[in-house]
C-alpha cells in the first residue's frame, strides 16, 4: 500500500487592497509557494468574521491565515486594527480549545510585498505540516 504524502489544507483570507495584490505580485514574480494555500478575497481583513475561521477548521482545514494591510495603511483607515484585536482574542480562544497557535496566523502584507507573501506562505505551510492533520475541531459529520 502506498502511503499518501500528507498535504495540509490552508485557507488564506486576503484583503482586496494590500494582501490580495501582494499575492498577485508574488504570482507576477513567479515566487512559488505550496498549492495547499487557497485564497479567499475579502474587501478588508476586518470583513473576516471569526465564524469563517471556525467554519474552516470545522470543515477540516489544517491552518487559517488572515492577511491585511500594514497597521496605519488600511484602505478603510482602521479596519485592520479591528482585525488585530478580534483575531488576538479568537486565536487565544482557539489555542485554549486545542488548535495550536501555529495553525492560525495574522500577517500584514502590502501590495508591494510579493516576496513577503510567498515567504509567509512557505513558512506557514511548513509549520502546519509539522503539526500534521487537525482533528481537534473537525466535525466528522462533514466528512464524506
Amino acid at each position: 500500500m502506498q502511503v499518501k504524502e500528507y498535504k495540509p489544507l490552508i485557507v488564506a483570507f486576503c484583503c482586496n487592497w494590500c494582501s490580495y495584490a501582494g499575492a498577485d505580485l508574488a504570482g507576477n514574480n513567479r515566487l512559488s509557494y505550496p498549492a495547499d494555500v487557497k485564497i479567499i478575497r475579502v474587501p478588508c481583513s476586518c470583513r473576516v468574521n471569526p465564524m469563517f475561521v471556525l467554519r474552516a477548521f470545522q470543515r477540516g482545514a489544517d491552518g487559517v491565515i488572515i492577511c491585511g494591510c500594514h497597521p496605519g495603511d488600511c484602505h478603510y483607515t482602521s479596519g485592520n486594527y479591528y482585525t488585530r484585536r478580534r483575531m488576538a482574542l479568537l486565536f487565544s480562544m482557539l489555542d485554549y480549545l486545542g488548535i495550536e497557535r501555529d495553525r492560525t496566523r495574522l500577517e500584514w502584507v502590502s501590495a508591494a510585498e510579493g516576496a513577503k507573501f510567498a515567504a509567509t506562505m512557505n513558512d506557514f505551510v511548513e509549520k502546519v505540516t509539522a503539526l500534521g492533520e487537525n482533528k481537534r475541531l473537525e466535525d466528522l459529520r462533514c466528512k464524506k
Binding site: 487557497k38 479567499i40 475579502v42 476586518c46 470583513r47 479596519g79 479591528y82
Partner: peptide, 30 residues
C-alpha cells in the same frame, strides 16, 4: 469594508457582494 458585519452580534448586518453566506460557501467549497 465590512467592519460592521463582524461587530453585529445578531447577524443582522451583511455586506452585499461579500455576504457572510457567500464567503462561508467559499470556505466550504475549499
Amino acid at each position: 469594508c465590512g467592519a460592521c458585519t463582524v461587530a453585529c452580534p445578531s447577524g443582522a448586518m451583511d455586506l452585499r457582494g461579500f455576504a457572510s453566506g457567500q464567503i462561508m460557501a467559499e470556505v466550504d467549497a475549499i
